[in-house]
Nucleic acid binder design. Sequence first.
DNA 1: GAGTTGGGCGTACAGTTGTGCGCTAATTTA
DNA 2: TAAATTAGCGCACAACTGTACGCCCAACTC
Lengths: 199, 199
Amino acid sequence: MRRQQQKLKTRRAIIDAAFNLLDEQRSLSSVSLREVARAAGIAPTSFYRHFKDIDELGLTLVDEAGLALRQLMRQARSRIDAGGGVISTSVNTFMEFVVSNSNEFRLLLREHSGTSPAFRAAVLREIQHFIEELTDYTANHTGLNRDLAGLQAEAMVKLVFSAGAEAIDANAAQRKVHAQRLNQQLRFIARGAAFYAGK
Amino acid sequence: MRRQQQKLKTRRAIIDAAFNLLDEQRSLSSVSLREVARAAGIAPTSFYRHFKDIDELGLTLVDEAGLALRQLMRQARSRIDAGGGVISTSVNTFMEFVVSNSNEFRLLLREHSGTSPAFRAAVLREIQHFIEELTDYTANHTGLNRDLAGLQAEAMVKLVFSAGAEAIDANAAQRKVHAQRLNQQLRFIARGAAFYAGK
DNA sequence: GAGTTGGGCGTACAGTTGTGCGCTAATTTA
DNA sequence: TAAATTAGCGCACAACTGTACGCCCAACTC
């Protein structure tokens, strides 16, 4: 059993090293296999014992970041149940995620419009997941029909991601302003959707 | 005088070559100086007679793409004056731009969340320009105060860019669906903003 | 205890990169 | 016409890349 544990540990080291390399100046496609190996403390050729490609590593990273995002959503929902507005609670939770998992969010942000079709597709799946859960929530907690709920959820998620993109490079004060603007804009959408639902 | 003309011509060749390299698989940071030179039909070292860096070339490309976008906006405004809804006319014009100038749009899209702070700043300036003009237009053509108009314009521009990002890889039929969804979502925002203005 | 498996390493190689240097040839200036 | 400028080129070099190959040795199987 010792062997598998060691292998998992090295794999983790590679993944963590890759995430740490993804600061504001680097993207997946600009990180080389050798660099990752160096940061992980292994020989370049050892990399192949764990991943076929840099691309395979990249997909793993996207999956992990997406998972972290989904966990965030659950957390946000539980807070809403405990009281507080749906919108402001979600916005605050999201902003916290952007700050505390900045490299994970940056990865999603960058590869969303990056050069690799496979990465783009992977990120899109995560975002779609995000939208679907919000659609369900909206349809259940308001009288909105699914079409309108879907339109609203999509618009909201897009705005949230855009705001996250701006917030990631901002300081706490600026982030607060962004969060407030985003709050108001999400209310526009909610109000508009309610209007078109005939309410 | 012959010499300057020739120099401009070569410079144009470099810029055009760079744009042509920026298809769905390449980004500015992944295009090498030698590649650009090769595509432009010059020796690698000749590149330096025109640009100090690849980065200097990149900024030039962002500026050109932004200019094309601004021209698009003027065109859209003139069409609106000639009749047709503000939103649907703008959406249609934008979608046309995404299709016919796909590499320019892709450049803005990618570098907006890219690895170079300088490029990100340059794209952000263009988007800000976009938002400001829409804010002015909105404030003038509706009773909205500037704060609300600004919030609305920002939200709309972000949604438009997001939709453009999806449309760029889609076929005509899918694009039509995206355009219709975007239309409805922009109406949500307009409606919501009007509501908060007390109308 | 003997044999197999497999993670990790070092070496090696061909390919690509950015860029410094000095030359040519043609245009521009004097 | 003679001199100066300059776009473009070829060569060279060191740095870096991905990855093939084969060895080692600790962990596992039997």
